[in-house]
Amino acid sequence: MSARGFAPVFWAGTVAAAALGFYLVSLRVASERAALEDVETEIAMAQRDIRLLQTEIGTRGRLAQLERWNVRFIRLSAPTADQFVEGGFQLATLVKPEAKPAIAAPVILASAPVEQDAPQSKLTGEAPTSAPASRSVSEMVHVASYSVPDKTPAVTQRLAIKPGAPVAKPAAGASRPPKALAATKSVKTATADPLAPLQTAKPKAKGSSPKAASGAGSPKAKPKDSVTD
């Protein structure tokens, strides 16, 4: 009974609540729409500002102005045909490092004996005992002997190429006993032997390299040693 009596009230309440609900939804939608419009307006204003600033920067950086600066201060000019490269390969050739003259072998040989001055004397003692190794070492000893009187290594290097041999002979003779003298002869033979074993006197310390002296020189050195001995 009571429920039946209140039915219209319930209905009225429900309808009122529904209406209120609808209104709230609509209100929410409207406020969202308003927010969206605000954002859109902001975007539009930003775009307008962008346009304004672009116009300003375009006016300040106009080509005629840039040209004027270029003529007065920067002075850039159009590239010539030669400044264009075909591709990466041609570009790479432009940055090729400068070719340095190859260091000749005798220079290395000459520098070595200066350091080995002290041990050489010991090695010379060993040299006669072992046949192949000793000869290569003994060759080095004699090269070193050139440099000792000259003192400055740079000078000896140059001297060793041309007048080295004649100077070396008396120097070696003065500093060392007959062993050294014999060794100087062996040096000559060692340097010359890759070319011709018989013409020992003519080429002096010309093409002597450490490798030739130690490796290639050793097997061929045998007959010459026998000659000099």
Partner: peptide
């Protein structure tokens, strides 16, 4: 009316 590049 503005001509940004002036006389260009």
């Amino acid at each position: 009316r503005l001509y940004p590049q002036t006389s260009l």
